[in-house]
Amino acid sequence: MNDRVIPFSDLAPTTAEIRAEVEDGWRRLLDGNAWVGGAPVERFERAFASYCDTAEAVAVANGTDALHLILRALGIGPGDEVLVPANTFIATAEAVVLAGARPRFVDVDPTSLLMTPQGAEAALTPSTAAIVPVHLFGHVADVEGLAEVARRHGLALVEDAAQAQGAERNGVRAGSTGRAAGFSFYPGKNLGAFGDAGAVTTDDAALAATIRSLADHGRAADDKFLHTSVGTNSRLDAVQAVVLSAKLARLDAWTQRRAKIVDAYRERLADLPLRIVEPDVGVDSAWHLLVVRVADRDAVRAGLAERGVLTGIHYPVPCHEQPAFAAWADGPLPCASEAAREILSLPLHPYMDLEDVDVVRDALADVLRRRRGPT
């Protein structure tokens, strides 16, 4: 039995790498006493827009707000339907409901587990106003094909890129194809704050201005005492902007390390009865998560935990099976439901070493061998 514990994720090494830079930035904030917005937030917005190859980035309080604000700024609300994949974090569908619209859940490709143009086309109704593909696990969905579906039907394409900072499809960055994209900087994300944070990216300056206003209580751009719409409070604070700027400068290097670890997993897991959920051809994944599909998942996960290997599940209950969204569940979505019973997220973070991967592999091999019994 392995005495070593392999955590599912470990934020301490990346925190240590940026600590001195963050402390220096925070000291400057303490000297200036400007905590909300200001130069640190503006610097991060410019840097993140450049990183995503978009004209604009608007920093907001979290990823859920990013999607909600995009939909509101696009005028999507009561009477509208928005297509979302069933196998996403609940926030994707939640943002639709918060905007007053109806989420219409779409089944996903059985291999990639992502929304496809064919799946979106089949789910369209006369009330459809937008398509929201999710770049799950860091793998970019077929945004070119989905953009074409959206164009033909006069719909808005909004990317949920919460798990895909830095990912690309055919050389195009996640978050730069649709009308806008929502990003999450929850601490566990590849680009994670020291708390909640998020951003919207877009090439539409007018849309960005509307989102910026809505996120600041509907305030007019040229008069702080004039409120032209009913907004909300979703401003990024300067403390988090300092952290995100320090991490953004290192994000590509961390992503490259993740990819090398995934390569090692591929080699070591090739002979085991499981399957890695891979990105489509042409996708340079951000590898936010390394997900495998395995039979008897819950028992396998328990066996790994007994051997000191900690794992996750993203996500065990698809949105259309969640009690909170029962009113919008139109019928069975077999691919999403089947995958939810089999998916298992293995340990992955930039500072894993090959010995860690070996420990995970040996634990998996032992658990799977014992479940198969003697041969």
Rank of each mutant, 00 (worst) to 15 (best):
D216F: 03
G231M: 05
G198Q: 02
A221W: 01
L114Y: 00
I211D: 10
F185R: 01
A120P: 05
E159T: 06
R219M: 14
T232W: 04
P126D: 10
T177G: 01
D222H: 12
I131H: 06
V108Q: 07
V149N: 02
V140C: 10
A91K: 12
G145M: 09
D222S: 10
A141R: 03
T128M: 04
Q165F: 01
D203S: 14
H217I: 10
R152M: 08
G119W: 05
T125I: 04
G100S: 05
T210F: 00
V97S: 11
P110E: 11
R151T: 03
A174I: 04
T202K: 08
A167L: 07
D160Y: 05
A208W: 04
G231E: 02
A208V: 08
K224Q: 11
T116R: 08
E159G: 06
I211L: 01
A174P: 04
R179A: 15
G138W: 12
D160F: 05
A181D: 02
I131L: 13
E121M: 11
A220G: 05
H135R: 07
T116Q: 07
E168Y: 08
A123L: 04
A99C: 08
K224E: 14
V158T: 05
Q163I: 00
G198C: 09
P126T: 11
A215L: 01
G182V: 07
S127M: 03
T125P: 01
A99Y: 11
D204Y: 11
T210G: 01
G178Q: 07
L155G: 03
Q118F: 01
G154C: 06
L124Q: 09
E121S: 14
R212K: 14
A161P: 01
A141H: 01
G166C: 10
R173H: 13
A164W: 02
T125V: 01
R212A: 15
A208G: 08
T210C: 09
A206M: 09
H135L: 02
A164E: 06
R219E: 11
G188R: 09
A221T: 10
L191M: 09
D142A: 06
L146Q: 08
P110A: 06
F183I: 04
R169V: 07
T92L: 15
H217P: 00
Q165T: 15
H217A: 13
L191W: 04
A215K: 07
V172H: 11
A95V: 05
A197Y: 03
V172G: 00
V140I: 12
S184W: 06
R219W: 02
S127H: 15
Q165S: 15
G100K: 07
